Computed example of a mutant assay.
Amino acid sequence: MKVAQIGSGTPEVAVVAGIHGDEPCGVRAVERLLDERPTVERPVKLIVANEKALERQVRFVDEDLNRAFPGDPDAKTHEGQLAHRLVEELEGCLTFSMHSTQSHAEPFAIVNGVNETAEEIVPQLPVTAMVETSNFAEGRLFSEIDTVEVECGMQGSETAAQNADRLTRAFLTAVGALPGDTMYNDLPVYRLTDVIRKQEADTYEVFVDNFAEVEAGESFAAADGDEQVADESFYPVLMSSNGYRDVFGYAAEKLDVLTAPPAAD
């Protein structure tokens, strides 16, 4: 784990990249901040988490780090020990954690709860949606640390790396670490309600778009040509044919649309 800091003092804000070793987009954003060393108005801790997995270009070494929190210093896995160290390092910090996906090109945010912090910060980020995932938070970083997680784009793409840099700077501006102004967006909010599992098969297909409502009775995916039909309407999130080994993705409900505050005269 690589830990660095820009600005002097004790950080209350942190940026984390490389939770998964096959998602390098956030690492690029952190490295750029360290190269440029911008003048900050409050100190920021910068962390590249799973260096061993990044070196091997694999998602994880022994287990998924973002399912291993709070971790244990005596864990038998690399990620179990790393999770414990990372929680210690991030204690007291509002944390921004970057990921990428095989299912959706546009950036969106994931939070453990739609609280005051999320409602204030996430609409200032260049994201298309906010997803509340408290029903599925076990073992994830934000189960232990106050965290805004973002999916920056398609895994391994240059666009995801560019988005990661843009998202990081927007976050740091929103929390008052970087000078300047942000732009508030009207932001739809969803809550994950169920896991959409898939049977073992040779080929998988997904027929729907993420965040586009699937109506009851509509076919939304197939395994070896065997179609799955929605029993009730839902919004697909992180749906892809091969992004996960045993699930297509998640079903969600739409909660609200956060509207931008009126512009000051």
Rank of each mutant, 00 (worst) to 15 (best):
H78N: 11
H78C: 02
E79W: 10
G80H: 03
Q81H: 08
Q81E: 05
Q81W: 05
L82M: 09
L82G: 01
A83P: 07
A83T: 13
A83C: 08
H84M: 02
H84P: 02
H84E: 02
R85G: 03
R85T: 11
L86T: 12
V87D: 02
V87P: 03
E89L: 08
L90D: 06
L90S: 06
G92Y: 08
C93E: 03
L94G: 07
L94Y: 13
T95M: 10
F96A: 04
F96L: 07
S97T: 14
M98Y: 04
H99K: 14
H99I: 13
S100R: 11
S100M: 12
S100F: 06
S100P: 10
T101G: 05
H104I: 08
A105D: 13
E106P: 00
P107T: 14
P107W: 02
A109P: 10
A109G: 08
A109C: 09
A109H: 06
I110C: 12
V111P: 13
G113D: 14
G113K: 12
G113Y: 02
V114A: 04
V114P: 00
N115M: 05
E116M: 07
T117R: 14
A118F: 00
E119M: 15
E119F: 01
E120Y: 11
E120K: 14
P123D: 05
Q124G: 05
L125N: 11
L125P: 09
P126I: 10
P126M: 07
P126T: 11
P126L: 06
V127M: 07
T128Q: 13
T128Y: 00
T128A: 03
A129V: 02
M130I: 15
M130W: 01
V131D: 04
V131N: 10
V131P: 09
